[in-house]
Design a protein around this nucleic acid. Structure first.
Ligand SMILES: [Mn+2]
Ligand SMILES: [Mn+2]
Ligand SMILES: [Mn+2]
Ligand SMILES: [Mn+2]
Lengths: 220, 220
DNA sequence: AAATAAATTTAGACAAATCTAAATTTATTT
DNA sequence: AAATAAATTTAGATTTGTCTAAATTTATTT
């Protein structure tokens, strides 16, 4: 496996995340994501195409090749393993890990990452509940739905939270909701789309639509 | 504290290590150390001087300012903490840690490093026995002498080993010599400068001049 | 189907870090 | 004190990654 610059890696990772949603990624989309300019995107797309990491025809958008996807999964593996390390071992809070992992992910020594993985006990998800690809780039995609879609009176487990800010973390901690928490929706209100939910055997609590939209649970 | 590029950091660190020996560092010396060309050194020296990290007059050599030294100690702190982490937690061998730490040292998040330090139990020396600067950049300089200088029949402790290769590690492991091992020189041979030494209460063993020159012990 | 708007690419510029080759300064020898 | 050698700097080029502004292509309206 060749090595890529930090800049190349940031483009590859961003494309990977955008194409999960879109399929095909556009120049302006990627420029917005990376907070850079469309002209810079075009330049890098030519380079990644030359390296066979990208399918790209001028004006037609782009997507990663199989090789490009492998590279992306390697970066995401490093990112999420470091996030896990920071949270689990160094006791960083949930909202702090991402920024530091953004730098650590670019240290791409294979042995370092595989030994780190082993040291951490081969964690399957990062502190936000996102899956960690294994050493072969295999990623476990669990079926998840937003808690707003969960049927009433069905117990499920919180799988991930899509917003990673300190503000949502504060609220979730206050309400004692974390990754892995067992939850059950008791009532849905049409007026404001708020939910009443139960956590284990505690009294029902209310969560707003804004909060609910960010909480995903396993469909089991 | 400002941030510096990986390239700037590598220059600063190399100057720090060279001036320990020399006092003043020269262009050619630094070019050799960094495996680059004199012209590149001059370019970077101008930049570091402009940033007030370096005292430099054309043709007169250079040395770090107080600010430059602080920056250097920060880099060395990160490098050695990561080396300790790799050896202690990830079970890397002694000769493998340096290369990986060369990359990790450039991730300069203050909180990351201070939390890592705490997690590791505030280690005072890295796996090679070199001192780790604390969060304030204070470095504990222990008085050391080469084992070749140690008086006969005086027990001392192995403080550090200057060669970091896998070859010397293999030999040291075979002879059961490590950082912290108590040693006593029993006899010195003038013919080949080999030494007979005792480790704890075990039978004497012989070490060659080449090996002895790389072993340093605390003077106490 | 033009005309207009939006998206994208191209052209040309710039900063960082590096190099080679030439010029300059300092050190060493005769 | 010249002459020569060694060390260092300068000049000019190259690569990577970025940008602005202009040109081009594609999409959307009239
Ligand atoms: Mn993240
Ligand atoms: Mn994450
Ligand atoms: Mn080292
Ligand atoms: Mn070391």
């Amino acid at each position: 496996m060749l090595n890529y610059t930090t800049s190349e890696e940031n483009y590859i990772k961003a494309i990977y995340h955008l194409q999960k949603v879109d399929g095909m990624v556009t120049t302006n989309e990627l420029a917005a994501e990376l907070e850079s300019k469309p002209a810079s995107i075009t330049d890098m797309m030519k380079k990644l195409k030359a390296k066979k990491l990208l399918n790209y025809q001028p004006y037609q958008g782009f997507r990663l090749t199989a090789d490009g996807t492998k590279v992306a999964l390697g970066i995401i593996r490093r990112h999420r393993l470091w996030e896990f390390f920071l949270a689990e071992k160094l006791k960083f809070t949930w909202d702090e890990v991402h920024e530091v992992a953004e730098d650590l992910e670019h240290v791409s020594n294979k042995k370092l990452i595989d030994k780190l993985d082993e040291y951490l006990g081969f964690p399957r998800v990062d502190p936000h509940g996102d899956p960690i690809p294994d050493a072969n780039g295999k990623i476990e995609i669990s079926k998840k739905i937003c808690i707003t879609e969960l049927a009433v009176n069905t117990v499920s487990t919180v799988a991930s939270v899509s917003d990673h800010s300190s503000e949502i973390l504060e609220l979730l901690e206050h309400k004692k909701i974390a990754i892995g928490t067992k939850v059950e929706v008791k009532k849905k209100f049409e007026f404001d789309n708020s939910l009443e939910i139960k956590i284990n055997r505690q009294p029902v609590i209310t969560i707003s639509e804004q909060l609910a939209k960010n909480i995903f649970v396993y469909t089991s």
